[in-house]
Computed example of a mutant assay.
Amino acid sequence: MKNRTKVLWTEKAEFPIGWGIKKHSHDYYHLFYIVEGNGSFIIHEQVFDAKPDLCYIIPPGVPHELEKVKDNTLISYEIKFLIHDEDIVKHLNLETPQFVGDEFFRSIIPSIVANGRSKDSYYIRNTDAFLCSLLVHIANKNDVEEAPNSELIDTAGFHKITIKAIDFIEQQYMKRIYLDDVADHVGYNRNYLCSLFKKDTDITIIDYLNYVRIRKACEYIVYSDIDMNRICYRVGFTNPNHFNRTFKKFVGLPPTVFSKLHPFDINDDNDSVDSTLNKQLLTIPEALKTLNQTNE
């Protein structure tokens, strides 16, 4: 399988007073992460301060230069690389090439630089994984607000309000949440929200909340050693009897019976609940049906 990125060259570079980089461009990406000192980058005719914990990614074909260092030695990690994954390119908005570093930058960039020129396939794969993680991290930092989505169902074709409500439920299901909480989060009247949600999904908001809670309960039963009462409270139920009734409604059998039918088996590749729960769920009706299939 082709790597998603390719590191071409790495270095921990030092620029003493009077040194710089002449204006140039190239056919690959160029990353600078400033470790010490101060200076000035000119990227596409725009001036940027070069100072510790700032990261710059210059896209292919963009003219850039480092003005001659004036005050003290500038130290920077440099990574020159290609991106073969169109999804990374799409999400990596480099209209503004400057990013503020954080603990993730400080831990992962030195590793990429240290191993990026290795010819050993093990280190090549690891460096590719590290670089991909860094680029995804940068893409996420660049988003003012992460787009809501669902980890359980395909929301294609749903109204953005419905998607926002689904995302809220999936993030907050373990708490005591009510219709008004969901309505306040999406910023719309609860009656309008309920109508829109039912139109998109063909079920009510409360039914979806209960589906998410039971779906999560199934995961806890399969993957953890938490007792049933704790699972009940952890997924948002306040009453074990209500949890048991709701579980049986969605799965078709009580949680205690489900746990005996589906002990986790690392060697089971065919008929495990894991393969059932984690298959791609195309619609909410299919998602609900999938839970019931776990008792077969």
Score class of each variant (00 low, 15 high):
Asp49Thr: 13
Gln98Tyr: 02
Leu134Tyr: 02
Pro60Tyr: 13
Asp227Lys: 09
Thr5Asp: 08
Asn239Ala: 08
Lys2Gly: 07
Ser272Met: 07
Lys12Thr: 13
Leu282Ser: 12
His262Gln: 03
Ala147Tyr: 13
Thr238His: 10
Pro285Gln: 15
Arg176Lys: 13
Asp102Arg: 00
Gln172Ala: 12
Val144Ala: 05
Lys289Cys: 06
Pro148Ile: 09
Ala287Lys: 00
Tyr28Met: 10
Ala217Val: 02
Ala13His: 07
Leu82Met: 15
Arg213Ile: 05
Asp167Tyr: 11
Ile79Ala: 09
Val62Ser: 02
Asn244Val: 12
Thr5Ile: 11
Gly187Trp: 03
Asp271Met: 11
Phe250Gly: 00
His64Ser: 07
Val62Met: 09
Val47Leu: 10
Tyr188Glu: 05
Lys160Trp: 10
His64Pro: 02
Glu296Asp: 09
Tyr77Asn: 05
Tyr220Lys: 10
Phe258Glu: 06
Ile169Ser: 02
Phe130Glu: 08
Asp27Arg: 11
Leu179Phe: 04
Ala13Met: 10
Tyr188Trp: 06
His159Cys: 05
Tyr173Thr: 03
Pro59Arg: 09
Ile109Phe: 09
Gln293Met: 07
Phe15Glu: 02
Phe197Gln: 03
Pro254Val: 06
Asn126Thr: 08
Glu11Thr: 13
Lys249Arg: 14
Phe247Ala: 12
Pro16Gly: 09
Phe99Ile: 06
Phe104Thr: 08
Tyr33Thr: 04
Asn72Cys: 05
Arg215Val: 04
Gly37Trp: 03
Asn295Phe: 10
Glu103Thr: 10
Leu288Gly: 04
Tyr188Ile: 05
Lys248Cys: 10
Asp154Asn: 14
Ser76Lys: 00
Asp143Trp: 00
Val222Tyr: 15
Lys198Val: 02
Phe48Ser: 04
Ala50Ile: 09
Thr204Asn: 06
Ser25Ala: 15
Leu281Phe: 04
Ala217His: 03
Thr283Glu: 05
Leu92Gly: 08
Phe130Gln: 13
Ile88Gln: 12
Asp143Arg: 14
Asn3Cys: 01
Ile205Ser: 01
Leu291Arg: 11
Ile266Cys: 12
Asn295Ile: 15
Thr256Tyr: 09
Phe250Trp: 15
Phe41Cys: 03
Ile166Pro: 01
Asn278Thr: 08
Asp268His: 08
Asp167Phe: 07
Ile177Leu: 14
Tyr173Arg: 01
Ile88Gly: 04
Ala50Trp: 11
Ile177Trp: 04
Gly101Glu: 00
Asp202Lys: 14
Ala147Ser: 10
Val212Arg: 05
Asp274His: 13
Glu145Tyr: 11
Val35Leu: 12
Asp120Asn: 14
Glu36Tyr: 12
His24Asp: 12
Asn38Asp: 11
Thr283Leu: 02
Leu291Tyr: 08
Leu253Glu: 15
Lys175Thr: 11
Lys289Gly: 07
Ala50Phe: 00
Tyr33Gln: 05
